[in-house]
Simulated assay, not measured.
Amino acid sequence: MASFTFDHVGLSVADLDAQREFYARALDLTEVEEHFEMPEAQVRSMILRSPSGLKLELVERGGSTAQEFADPYDGARLQGYFHWALTVDDLDQAHGDLLAAGAQEVSPRRTRCASGPASPM
């Protein structure tokens, strides 16, 4: 069997430039590893990388629409991508840094318990 390693996750965004700035502030994703544009399909994309190697692809498509959910777990009603999880060395610091960078908390924060991970932000 072939060997696999994780490379990156991709997010569909409304404004590529605004999200690039947010992820640079929030997660130190400042290096542009790859940039792609397909004007005829109204698609722009870039893969951002942090000094630690974390990578995220942002994809903007003209005419895309935001998903709206009644609560943070409604996304699980749709099969496919549901969330992106990161490991941090200081949860309180990371939480504060993300909020300071402009992130919006969507559910109350709680600490990790023995039965599973902490609630998503």
Rank of each mutant, 00 (worst) to 15 (best):
H8T: 04
Y73G: 06
F22R: 04
S64E: 14
P120V: 13
G102R: 02
S115A: 07
H35P: 02
C113T: 10
P39V: 13
L54W: 05
Q79R: 08
S3A: 14
Q67F: 06
S12K: 11
A103M: 13
A76P: 07
F36H: 14
G102M: 05
G75D: 06
L11N: 06
E57W: 00
L54N: 07
E60P: 04
F82S: 11
R109Q: 01
L16C: 01
V88R: 08
D7I: 00
H35M: 07
G10H: 07
R20W: 03
E31Q: 12
S115P: 05
A103Y: 15
M1C: 10
H35C: 03
A118D: 09
L99Y: 11
S107R: 10
A103C: 13
R25T: 04
R49W: 05
D97F: 08
T87N: 14
A24M: 07
A94D: 08
R44F: 10
E34N: 15
S45L: 07
R20P: 08
D74N: 04
D74E: 13
A18I: 02
R61S: 13
S107L: 12
Q104D: 02
R20N: 09
E31K: 12
H8C: 04
S52Q: 10
S3E: 14
G75M: 01
L27H: 09
P72E: 00
A94T: 15
F82H: 13
P108H: 10
G116D: 03
G75K: 02
S107F: 05
G96S: 15
H8Y: 13
